[in-house]
Design a protein around this nucleic acid. Structure first.
Lengths: 149, 149
DNA sequence: TATTGTTGTATAGCTTGCTATGCAAGTGCT
DNA sequence: AGCACTTGCATAGCAAGCTATACAACAATA
């Protein structure tokens, strides 16, 4: 059986991810947010003051990627980084007022985007899709030391 | 109901796409290929000598992205671009010998990556996952003028 | 035929991902 | 105390996506 892009799950996954990303980018632009900051914000909205290392482990993102993302977030006034008192290597990440205020509108935008992009699927299919992705992620996480999703 | 990343399909799709991309990147590195060239190569292996515009329409990628990708491919000896004889604006894209020779090993690498990343799913689940992604793409394509997947 | 509009590519500049590498702060051993 | 090792983060440099804009070649029309 020959290989075509329309049947390659890797290709399809990339395409689907771009669809979601394009939609979300447009929706959160008015808030002054970009997609890359979203995962970090979600963690920090839950638990402010995490270390960079903790964020990396939670998000299955390379440390260097996280450092760059945090630098942009600091530049844009979403966070400040402060050295940990008891360990001079550790940077703790704290949300600004502005970032805290964005939690409601930003998550609303993400929920809207998910709903719209998946409007072509039934409720059952949406649930299947979600579960299948969770399984794939659980089985293929980058860091073995990471907590389960 | 509150919003968490582990239930946001957009977040999960991004994560799944990164998993496939990381795997494929490693597998095709020995061939001197990168993931971004893959979609264009798949089209050109089918039909050599396409125009840039045709590639853009087939792949649901921005024209500027395609122009950049083709520039890298030309730099790396995968393609050459030649002006169309009858229309001076049009660039036709032709594979080099090297690129033609990579068809077998490259598609094998992609199939292996797909199989490995999805080994956690049953055959049925893999089929469901594929079909669901195809539906999402069909309903959310960027270009209305594009051919159906 | 000259002007005006359209079309196909290219370029500039950004984000978000990656690998590889550097470096300062902590830890442990002798 | 001094040495090597480890750990947490930063930086350099690249790929691959995007938007906005420029530009040359063609098309259409007054």
């Amino acid at each position: 059986m020959e290989f075509t892009k329309d049947h390659s799950q890797g290709y399809l996954a990339n395409h689907v991810a771009r669809i979601f990303a394009r939609g979300l980018t447009a929706r959160i632009k008015p808030l002054g947010l970009t997609t890359g900051t979203f995962p970090a914000l979600l963690e920090l909205w839950e638990t402010d003051g995490m270390t960079q290392k903790q964020l990396v482990a939670k998000l299955d993102i390379e440390q260097a990627t996280m450092a760059n993302t945090l630098a942009r977030m600091e530049r844009d006034g979403l966070i400040i980084r402060k050295k940990d008192a008891s360990d001079g290597r550790v940077q703790r990440v704290w949300l600004t007022e502005r970032a805290r205020a964005l939690r409601g509108p930003a998550t609303a935008a993400a929920m809207d985007e998910n709903a719209d992009s998946l409007a072509c699927l039934t409720e059952d299919e949406q649930q299947q899709f979600t579960t299948l992705m969770q399984k794939i992620i659980a089985a293929n996480r980058y860091r073995a030391d990471a907590p389960p999703e």
